[in-house]
């Protein structure tokens, strides 16, 4: 049933392939999480402004993306993304064929999904800071940028770390879906290996253990970060 000999490193087994696939999963997760936080900063800011249009756009984006399945978002971007990029390129006078590579598409897709969750976390973190903090900084004569960078951002980050840890776990698990784009991460590698060796159980259990290792390890890391940033506070 479970064939350990198929998991050795080198030409006889799939050990090294799986190690590379795990690295790919980590790379995609980190890049998507980064893109997600980048988009989320704007989405959270748009939700907090007084402009009704910006508020509407931002909440429309988060409601729609969170309301439809992740797989559908990935399909839409994977199959529709290249066509969209070609249309944009046509406006600038380029008529050739453009194909985005699987890594770019995966990072964009997972990033867009992850951003909806991150934006809520960042918004809640911003709202949890007492108003007096910004007011005190203002009365000390700090400029708006200084207030944002030196007073608000450190506190937002401290409040957001537990929430971002949860988003990270979801993002990490969502990367299993990008195997449909053909990018060789853990899940894709599992399908390839089980098709070659006709032993799906071995490789699926391996994949489960790899994901379990990644989620456990990263939750330990986020706990450490949380403890570290909480130092000096109750």
């Amino acid at each position: 049933m479970f064939k350990f000999e198929k998991l050795v490193f080198g030409d006889l087994g799939w050990g090294d392939e799986f190690l590379l696939a795990m690295l790919m999963t980590i790379v995609v997760s980190i890049l998507s999480m980064g893109l997600g936080i980048f988009i989320a900063i704007f989405a959270a800011w748009a939700k907090l402004t007084s402009s009704k249009i910006l508020k509407f756009i931002s909440s429309f984006y988060t409601t729609v993306i969170r309301g439809i399945p992740e797989l559908l978002v990935i399909y839409l971007i994977f199959f529709g993304g290249s066509a969209l990029v070609m249309k944009i390129a046509k406006v600038f006078g380029y008529n050739g064929y453009i194909e985005l590579n699987a890594l770019t598409i995966s990072v964009i897709a997972i990033g867009i999904i992850s951003a909806t969750y991150s934006s809520e976390v960042l918004r809640a973190a911003y709202l949890s800071i007492p108003k007096g903090q910004a007011e005190a900084a203002k009365s000390l004569g700090l400029s708006r940028w200084q207030i944002f960078l030196k007073i608000l951002t450190p506190q937002i980050l401290r409040h957001a770390i537990p929430g971002l840890g949860n988003v990270w776990q979801v993002t990490l698990k969502d990367t299993s879906l990008i195997s449909v784009t053909g990018l060789v991460e853990i899940m894709r590698q599992t399908r390839i290996a089980s098709n070659v060796e006709h032993s799906p159980l071995t490789f699926l259990i391996t994949a489960a253990f790899l994901y379990l290792f990644l989620t456990t390890f990263s939750s330990k890391f986020f706990n450490f970060l949380e403890r570290k940033t909480k130092k000096g506070y109750a």
């Binding site: 698990k173 969502d174 299993s176 195997s179 994949a207 489960a208 994901y211 379990l212 989620t215």
Partner: peptide, 8 residues
């Protein structure tokens, strides 16, 4: 909770 639904 530590593994993706797709794996399951």
């Amino acid at each position: 909770r530590g593994t993706p639904l797709l794996v399951q």
